[in-house]
Write a protein that binds this DNA or RNA. Sequence first.
RNA 1: GCGGACAUGGCGGAACUGGCAGACGCGCCAGACUCAAAAUCUGGUUAUGGUGACAUAGUGUGGGUUCGAUUCCCACUGUCCGCACCA
Length: 803
Amino acid sequence: MNSRYEFAAIEKKWRAEWEKNPVNKEDDKKPKYYCLDMFPYPSGTGLHVGHWRGYVLSDVISRYKLLQGYQILHPMGWDAFGLPAENYAIKTNTHPEVSTKANIANVKRQLHEISAIYDWSREINTTDKGFYKWTQWIFARMFEKGLAYEKEMPLNWCPSCKCVLANEEATNGVCERCGSQVTKKNLRQWMLKITNYAERLLNDLDKLDWPEKVKKMQSDWIGKSYGAEVDFKVDGTDKKITVYTTRPDTLYGATFMVLSPEHKLVKEITTDECRQAVEDYCYQASTKSSVDRMSDKEKTGVFTGAYGVNPLNNALIPIWVADYVLADYGTGAIMCVPAHDERDFEFAKKFNLPIIQVIKPKDEEEKELTEAYTGDGVMVNSPLFEGMTAFEAKEKAPHMLEEKGLGKKTVNYKLRDWVFSRQRYWGEPIPLVHCPHCGTVVVPDDQLPVELPEVENYKPTDTGESPLAAIDSWVNTTCPKCGGPAKRETNTMPQWAGSSWYFLRYADPHNDKELASKEALKKWLPVDMYVGGVEHAVLHLLYARFYTKFLYDIGVVDFDEPFLKLFNQGMINKDGSKMSKSKGNVVSPDDLVKKYGCDSLRMYELFVGPPEVDSEWDDSGIDGVFRYLNRVWKFIYTYKDKNHAPTKESDFVKNTMIDQITKRLEALTTNTVVSGFMEYTTKMIDIAKAQDGIDKSCIEDLLILLAPFTPHIAQELWSDTGHEGSIFDTSWPKADLSKLTVDEITIPLQINGKFRENLKISAESDKETVLAKAKEVLATRLAGKTIVKEIYVPNKIVNIVVK
RNA sequence: GCGGACAUGGCGGAACUGGCAGACGCGCCAGACUCAAAAUCUGGUUAUGGUGACAUAGUGUGGGUUCGAUUCCCACUGUCCGCACCA
């Protein structure tokens, strides 16, 4: 054993050994633990220290569970289809297939530097034919079950990516990928009925051990609301307008109605005098981008000339058209109660429409409203709800209206169906064929995968058509049903398609008969721990849950939630902002590994701050853990042959260390795990120095505890201290709690809540003894004062209250 | 606008269910070793006053509950995040 910690040689040696003999072996006698990272998209810029954070954490968890006697599935793969990969290819003028391959090679090299226990025999790649065959297979099942449908509607269109976007990809009216402003384009697209699953996606959140923040984001995104649909007759016609409202209690306060510009009754009810203005308005609304439409501060709108009839009191109220009403939520039409809704209030003020108050705030005089009142209160001017409070009426109104045949109780969701087709080359072809006789026909399973053809020109077009549409030899095919000439669907799937189910494939990655065998799925799934960034809270994580529930429904899997526990690691910032190439603040792990070694960097990644919180990267901080590992090396080098019988002291330190490290690791507060290592190692070294030797088991347990964090040095020292084989074949030590008791305790003494002295006293002392001793110690400070109260919290504190 | 999270030394951060604030690390200062430097080791490091043991103040601001508050409650300020006309 060398007296110096030669990390480079040690790490090289053990990495080679572990490549030959992986420490993680399958053993069906053991319980399973599936620890998964959100698989990366193979980016051209490679990994930085921020990426390491999550990968190190999941590896530490995997190795810890391994030592606890589990068989571990800890796989890695590539999310390689989709816009990021394709945009990178276009930018560098390389075919996406070529650039993706090169990027994977580079990122894979970097991942090896982490020395994680990935099972590379299970590596997957969403762009492999053997993989996307099953991505298509799942789509085919959805199509058969009626969950995939085609619809023409105004969609989010990114002019830079030249592609439609799902709602989840266009939050704030900005393209999730490139940051361009999203416009609207009327297109015929494939949709997935994720809304069929809205209720289950919402309710089952309760089952999940996920960060509350992510659950809340999902439930807000699903956006369930309770209310009523109410029918308003259009005066002088036989038509009726159905509105959705969450405040049916305020029905008597409705003074006008608003239809969205896209509402199909707009044309039919508009009077001739108003027709020109309404048509102009609707045309303008249709050309506005969603950003413009949202960012308009002033409300706009036009009167249709028609009137609706309030079903409760037959009052005639004007019907307007305004773009603040969304076509695709509720019924696309609303009743407006300006007295009790902020938006309606603003609109009424601007267009001088009447305001009728139907809720009187409690303990307040009636006065003219200067803003909408949305709180609770007493119902007024509302015969049907006489004597109720507003919130009471809100509860009861849907039912009351239903009984009267004026409306019905309704539930609405903000969640929209998932726009599933993309006008891009680099994605899974949608396995459908359009036949002039048979209509849209799904490609039979035995003809899957529908392969992505190799093309010269993969760049997106401006027409809203995929580049695939230009390849006649690929587009023209025969109908699987009638054998006649037919055309292939030319859109591809969005980048989320593969990642919505990839975690299943790891269980059985080479299966060409099924997406994964029943046995393999039963053995490994669901995922026990999922580690990744919070940016996928409503994208990938929602889609993956939807896919899993669908596969559960058709009997492919026997669980309906894919990820039991989710951990979101925080971002690592540099100089106060997110690392990015353009800011030039990217810290590469490669250099740090060279300078300090993999073990030091792993440990520092965990030490830099609480893992769920964003942290600031400081290069000099790694010196601390590097020094620590050198201290460990020197400690063991010095004392490995100086065994000393266990003492009360050494037992106490050893067992507190085991107890604390385990507790802190279970809580995933890894920064305190590392500080614990430093603290307890120092204490051990002090003991060893004092008695010139140390109980061998102290060293052994320290090394096993260190193994998940710094595997190379732990293994090297394990071998150097005369142990055969892998340290990962040992097991995680258990603290002997009986060794944690002490004879003498130190109790802080306070006077009036302020710390004054410490009292050392036998741990068995009773209250009287402690208080008597305490007063003795504090005697000079208590002289001349009157004791009002004496407080003793056993083993914690003494507080004497004086006047 | 609505909703959520957070606020502790020069810096990153500890403090379990209310009980010695500042663990651990970085940085800095001093000392040891050295011809010297690096590395390493030892000690110090919230502020103010004092040679000193010690005293006083102190966890964004103002209040409250309590013997005792970084921790609980109320109001405010600031930072970050999510949603954003969802009727």
